[in-house]
């Protein structure tokens, strides 16, 4: 199986590589269109700020490539938000692959939402074998609301999308690579899709 991690200099790529290594899987890190298109699985990590990440994607022509992909695709953290429509972070037009907006958390609560929180209302094969209310590690200041495309929810304190799915595009707000054995299980489920 060929796994490609999308490289646009805005990701915690090494942590994802190590998480795959712990599962006995190897991946290539690339921003090359042919390399990404030929992958069986594509992983799209991301940390940092939305508008600069979008600029980096555009600089590598990844903004036009990624929406055309048809293999199982996993966005992680900012990688999830970049798949959405529009973000309130820097008033940024995102890749618009999943028709969901990205909003800022209410000013009355602490941001970033940082730490371990429960996953609930789990759907899809991505969460096969994961028990309801399992913990995952989150660090983010913006969120996608719950919509028909939500396949897992978390609450801070209002429910938000902990994971999204639209066609072959899967996305998780939490860090699978830093969420202990449960995170590893979810990453393995993605590889099994």
């Amino acid at each position: 199986m060929k796994i490609v991690i999308v490289d646009y200099k805005a990701g915690n790529v090494q942590s994802v590589l190590f998480a795959l290594e712990r599962l006995g899987a190897q991946a290539t890190v690339s921003s090359n269109a042919e390399e990404i298109k030929s992958a069986d699985k594509v992983i799209f990590p991301g940390v940092g700020e939305a508008s600069s990440a979008m600029r980096a994607l555009k600089a590598n022509n990844l903004d036009t490539l990624l929406p055309t992909l048809t293999q199982p695709f996993l966005g992680v953290c900012l990688g999830m938000q970049l798949l959405c429509q529009h973000s309130e972070e820097g008033d940024t037009e995102m890749l618009n692959i999943i028709p969901v907006p990205v909003r800022k958390f209410d000013a009355a609560i602490k941001v970033p939402h940082m730490g371990w929180n429960n996953l609930h209302h789990l759907k899809s094969g991505l969460f096969a074998g994961i028990k309801e209310d399992e913990y995952a590690y989150f660090v983010h200041s913006f969120y996608a609301p719950v919509t028909e495309h939500t396949i897992a929810q978390s609450s801070y304190p209002e429910p938000f999308s902990a994971a999204l799915q639209y066609k072959n595009f899967y996305a998780v707000q939490f860090h699978t690579e830093k969420s202990g054995p449960a995170g590893a299980h979810i990453l393995q489920n993605f590889l099994n899709l």
Binding site: A19, E21, R22, Y137, V139, H175, E177, K178, S179, A184
Partner: peptide, 11 residues
């Protein structure tokens, strides 16, 4: 840091 990240799956 590299060795910790390789083996440890928490932040």
């Amino acid at each position: 840091v590299r060795e910790v990240a390789r083996y440890i799956d928490i932040p």
